[in-house]
């Protein structure tokens, strides 16, 4: 079918994208690996010495790393739990016929388009602030003591903010999946006497499984690298209470100027992300064949 000429042309057309992405992947990552084996501090330039696995040793044995790892996992799992459960319920609700579907859809999807720094600061100041925030006003109205969310429950507060940003994504994808559900199959089941609950369990749930997997995997990739929300709300604190791995690497390399240690942390983050990516790629690869 394709002539030799068009095949050569095709190869030429694909090569800029491939070369650029290859360089983008290999050059900075190679440098990170190289730096991770050096004793390299930006405050003492020109004093780099080979450090072997010392940077990894210090990074992995630092208590902050284990806190950050725990926080990263809590953040990812917490947001996933809220968005997947909330997303399924919301998608089921919005899939019903009701008045004003277009407007409600627009309202539900809106948080996804808000840039992370805006949503974090809006929640931090207008809602969670213990003096002037909305929640404080509500608490005072009922005669309760206002709660200082970001000081006393920093990680939970950040989970709430991030979940608010990602709930629309989960809802939108699950709603799209629900709308491709086979109506005839549903009606046939109903005629055969299947109740609403068993139709949900035996028809809807299996149909949604694939979309839920996609939501979980894609969100995980993004949630593993949450950064802006932490930077503008808590700066990782108090202590390390809301530090995740990206923030820890940032703090170590650009705030403490420890290039070697930061690079080792970066490589650890890459390895963690790859474990997740492995499953995501298999999933998407399967869909490509179908």
């Amino acid at each position: 079918m394709a002539t030799a000429q068009s095949r050569t042309a095709a190869r030429l057309m694909v090569s800029p994208a491939v070369i650029l992405l290859f360089l983008w992947m290999i050059v900075p990552l190679g440098m990170t690996i190289y730096f991770s084996f050096l004793r390299y501090n930006l405050l003492n330039p020109g004093m780099e010495t080979f450090a072997g696995f010392d940077n990894y040793y210090y990074f992995l044995t630092n208590a902050a790393f284990w806190d950050a790892l725990g926080n990263t996992l809590t953040l990812v799992l917490g947001v996933l739990a809220i968005t997947v459960i909330g997303g399924v319920l919301l998608a089921l609700l919005l899939d019903q016929p009701f008045r004003g579907q277009g407007i409600v859809r627009v309202m539900v999807i809106a948080p996804f388009f808000v840039m992370p720094t805006v949503s974090a600061l809006v929640w931090k100041n207008m809602f969670m602030n213990p003096v002037n925030g909305m929640f404080a006003h509500i608490a005072k109205f009922f005669g309760l003591q206002p709660f200082d969310f970001l000081a006393h429950a920093p990680l939970a507060s950040i989970i709430l903010i991030v979940a608010w940003q990602w709930l629309p994504f989960a809802t939108l994808i699950l709603l799209t999946a629900l709308q491709s559900l086979d109506r005839e199959q549903q009606e046939a089941a109903e005629m055969d006497g299947a109740g609403a609950l068993s139709r949900f369990w035996y028809l809807t749930v299996p149909h949604l499984t694939r979309s839920i997997t996609v939501v979980v995997l894609i969100q995980t990739i993004f949630l593993l690298s949450v950064f802006a929300e932490i930077l503008v709300t808590t700066n990782g604190g108090p202590g390390t209470a809301s530090t995740n791995i990206p923030y820890l690497v940032y703090a170590q390399s650009l705030l403490a100027f420890d290039v070697g240690g930061g690079s080792a942390g970066g490589i650890v983050a890459v390895i963690l992300a790859n474990i997740v990516a492995f499953f995501l790629m298999r999933m998407i690869g399967k869909n490509l064949e179908a």
Partner: peptide, 13 residues
């Protein structure tokens, strides 16, 4: 797969 690389992994370089 290049999209899966976390940004912090290459922050320093």
């Amino acid at each position: 797969s290049t999209k899966m690389m976390p940004a912090v992994g290459v922050l320093v370089p």
